[in-house]
């Protein structure tokens, strides 16, 4: 029995996994960044499918609009045009694929053996209003403290980036 929602879910899953796989296997670095972009859009689509609109919007804004653009800029700054990545040794590829596949098989074996209980509570749809209220509330179910910590972390990252990227001046004699 296939309805539209199921078909959309499997299409999004296929988009995410296929473009993720292409992103780690292509030898042209710019194409790798574009495939990464499609993979992240697929994840955002899965969030939309799960009815978490706010997370999907954040995913698109931060990942697709921020991180991928940053990666593409750094590719422009560091790669020669039209240059392919060096070929890897076939042995390394085979052993990496083997390790990744064994890890995947082990994880899925554990997941399928585990019986998850069915939740009895009724689902709430997290609206932006609820999320914002919970994020800034200071009582014991709020997230005000992690929010502040993340703010400090972002500030520290900002300062750190500036310090790292500063061109160091020649030493005065």
């Amino acid at each position: 029995m296939m309805n539209g929602s199921t078909i959309i879910f499997y299409l999004l899953a296929a988009l995410t996994l296929v473009s993720g796989l292409l992103s780690v296997s292509t030898r042209q670095i710019f194409r790798a960044a574009i495939y990464l972009l499609f993979s992240l859009i697929g994840i955002a689509g899965i969030y939309f499918w799960l009815d978490y609109q706010f997370i999907a919007a954040v995913q698109i804004v931060v990942y697709v609009g921020g991180i991928v653009v940053l990666i593409i800029f750094s590719i422009f700054l560091t790669q020669q045009a039209g240059e392919k990545l060096a070929k890897q040794k076939i042995g390394r590829k085979i052993f990496s694929a083997l390790a990744a596949f064994c890890g995947f098989a082990l994880t899925m074996l554990q997941v399928y053996q585990h019986e998850f209980y069915e939740p009895s509570e009724t689902a709430v749809s997290p609206t932006v209003f609820d999320i914002g209220k919970k994020m800034l509330s200071v009582n014991d179910k709020g997230y005000a403290l992690p929010f502040e910590v993340i703010s400090m972390l972002l500030l520290a990252a900002l300062v750190g980036c500036i310090v790292i990227a500063l061109r160091n001046k020649p030493e005065p004699k």
Partner: peptide, 24 residues
């Protein structure tokens, strides 16, 4: 999907030797 994507990333991290692709 989540586990598959995780191990795709692990595979990329093992095989890539370029820092930007490792970041991806």
């Amino acid at each position: 999907i989540s586990a598959a994507l995780f191990f795709i990333g692990v595979y990329g991290f093992f095989t890539r030797r370029n820092l930007i692709t490792m970041l991806m």
